[in-house]
Design a protein around this nucleic acid. Structure first.
Lengths: 201, 201
DNA sequence: GCATAGTTCGAACGATCGTTCGAAATTGTA
DNA sequence: TACAATTTCGAACGATCGTTCGAACTATGC
């Protein structure tokens, strides 16, 4: 990896932490300069501007989550694996990644609408693929559910997982794996329960 | 109600919608002037400044949710009502209120850290009472759960409910009551499942 | 009609923001 | 060492922000 790319990566990570702490709009380029040790003008050698910086952070992080999830599920391919098990693997990966990359994921979750135009569209495209992935998993778990309800259930699950940036401390009493297990059990248990309640049984 | 208070209320509601649409920091006082029909300087007759405006919106809305929840539960008091039923009533009220006051609740959920100092503290105090209320309900449902896990479960539930500002359209295919039912079934079903999985049975 | 309190607003201020630019410093190559 | 490419940065610009101020307008009581 070229030294330029390494410095850019380091810059993105530092910036993500500041964005996560103070929020994107409240963070000034001067804050970022102070946090990264670069000069105010120096940052513009690596990034076109503040909004492109946010975009790079979001794009990089989202691509990693998506690729990671696809890779995890690729190891559990085929009809021989329980659909619920695949769903739980997805949840575990998402929560685990979230806990391991708190700053970036908070920026991804909280600043989802801080981009505009082309950049907004590109990030939304990745998001769509990720949501589709989860919806396919839910379809395998509950093939008879109406699509609307399945879609709503997907967003409810994302709510459980993405909200954690508001309260969760990965270094606290609950380690990431335990949290992932808790969320996975709550959702899969309740999702099955909801089905049996609504669709007979 | 004095005309002054009515105009203030109307002002807060209009401002909440703009904050919900564009975000607090991206909204300028000039945007609010245009959206409310008032002049730029005229708004300062009703509000000390931009941050106090956000505080008034959050404080008013949060007080309403808390009071509403307490009132709903007051109608289900005593040991004669199933704890799960009381929990479901809480969920139904929260989701219903959210759907009926989308703008304010989005501002409440998304701009939770946009206040500082005394105002931040006052809103946090109300939030604490509200979280405590839910945790007591969960304690009645699962008395043997460790407090940490119960607290985490509470935040997981809030995640399911508060995330909806990111995707839910109250005028869409899923009406608020159906969404509330879906969330209530997912959580209560899964919460019970999680308990039986973790604590034997 | 007059005085008082309540309400609105045009115009401007100071502060801070993101960004730019050309020069300086550093690194790589012979 | 000499030269070119890459990388850094001090200083400043124009724009926009939240807020202020005093004057002007309106409603109310006498």
């Amino acid at each position: 990896m070229r030294p330029y790319d390494e410095r850019l990566d380091h810059f993105l990570s530092r910036a993500a932490r500041v964005f996560a702490d103070k929020g994107y709009h409240s963070t000034t380029m001067r804050d970022l300069a102070a946090a990264t040790g670069m000069s105010l003008a120096g940052m513009y050698y690596y990034v076109q501007g503040k909004e492109e910086l946010l975009y790079r952070i979001q794009e990089r992080c989202f691509t990693q989550v998506l690729a990671g999830a696809e890779q995890v599920l690729a190891g559990l391919r085929g009809g021989d694996v329980d659909p619920i098990e695949r769903l739980q693997a997805f949840i575990r990966h998402h929560v685990g990644f979230f806990a391991a990359h708190m700053a970036e994921m908070k920026v991804l979750s909280h600043e989802a609408n801080s981009l505009a135009g082309e950049r907004q569209r590109k990030v939304s495209a990745i998001k769509r693929r990720y949501v589709d992935l989860l919806e396919r998993l839910l379809r395998d778990v509950a093939p008879d559910d109406p699509a609307v309800e399945r879609s709503a259930a997907a967003y409810v699950l994302f709510g459980m997982m993405n909200w954690i940036y508001n309260w969760y401390d990965p270094a606290g009493e609950i380690d990431p794996e335990r949290l992932a297990g808790l969320i996975a059990r709550i959702f899969t248990g309740g999702f099955a329960e909801a089905r049996s309640t609504v669709h007979g049984g």
